[in-house]
Write a protein that binds this DNA or RNA. Structure first.
Lengths: 192, 192
DNA sequence: AGAGCCATGTAAGAGGTTACATGATTAG
DNA sequence: CTAATCATGTAACCTCTTACATGGCTCT
């Protein structure tokens, strides 16, 4: 669930300085914001997540009553929340389809919180997707060998097309990850 | 919603010959089946969709009571259901992320129901994604021009990386679509 | 005797979308 | 005068997941 970790991430970024109440966090998830262009979050869901994070003990709320307005609930990262954020930031995603959302959010926060960790994340993500690509390649090769004895004619061609698509998407993600490392430290934050 | 259209598609394939009750359809959505490897559907959801398709007037059920077993509900495509299936099969998907699920399901059924339509679908899908790729390319070019006046330093690099990823995924899908047409008519069903 | 097939579902819960409710203040 | 900003949520409604209930039949 990238949404809740993104909220933890925003609180970790502000840390003391930034307010950290719902309405304020909501701005980051609107269109035009770098984060909002990757992960859109409507107010309803945002408040829902904040309540859940509080139940989990990952954040603590401080309530400031205001005249003529709903009381403002300012959230702060709890130690358990910080630990969870770190754990999440260090884990690469397992599937190619998670690159578009989960991985981009991880990258966004890793870059700002700890550029060295961002560089490590990119490397590990490359290794994970690399293993996936190899596996897909092996399945494709095995398929070309069997040459239709288990499956009816068209099914074989279709199954092979599915594998080729997955491999193509994974390879594209791998190339993009490589580009991330190469275009200076601006993105990953490190020049290794 | 690809699941419901996949059910319509299965009923269209069987048409008269095949049974067309829930338990029977469920087999196609299990692992190892060409369709099941793209779209997994648990029995609970399958029966739910069948009820909904019936409420929509897209399928009609015929109930055959059986001794010592729950009555078997055999479904048949209604004219409205067939029209809806055709409409859906002819529409390419708008986003790259829908290629992995929605488009593959469309391709699966288009190939079997009407190979000529499958060929048209692939061509139109290429055009749609091609326009998307151009748009992404333009956005990227425009970004390189601005060179950080609206966004803080790192945000610019991040936003550019997001666009590059989307472009890479879209280009990979385009290449795959081109491959589909070229590897004989086996996949698209037409040798134009 | 026990496993698995047939054939239908329900129940409970997580996660998400869209729209609305409140009500004072500030900006155009 | 109208619209947007601030600040919180609720309500209704989908979708999906996981697990279970039923109960006879067939295969090993």
């Amino acid at each position: 669930m990238p949404a809740e970790h993104a909220i933890l991430g925003l609180l970790a970024l502000g840390d003391g300085a930034e307010p950290g109440h719902g309405y304020d966090l909501a701005r980051h998830f609107g269109e035009g914001q770098p984060l909002g262009d990757v992960l859109r979050l409507e107010p309803g869901m945002l408040y829902h997540h904040l309540k859940k994070l509080e139940r989990n003990g990952w954040v603590v709320a401080e309530v400031e009553p205001q005249p003529s307005r709903p009381a403002r609930r300012t959230y702060r990262l709890a130690p358990a929340g910080r630990a969870e954020l770190t754990r999440w930031l260090e884990a690469p995603v397992a599937h190619t389809r998670e690159i578009r959302l989960d991985f981009l959010v991880k990258l966004f926060f890793a870059r700002r919180l700890d550029p060295a960790r961002a560089a490590r994340l990119v490397v590990e993500q490359r290794e994970t997707l690399g293993r996936l690509a190899e596996s897909l390649g092996r399945q494709l090769a095995a398929m070309d060998g069997t040459d239709d004895r288990t499956l009816p004619a068209g099914d074989h061609a279709f199954a092979a097309a599915v594998l080729r698509l997955r491999l193509a998407q994974t390879t594209a993600a791998l190339d993009w990850l490589t580009g991330l490392v190469e275009t200076r430290g601006t993105v990953t934050g490190s020049t290794t």
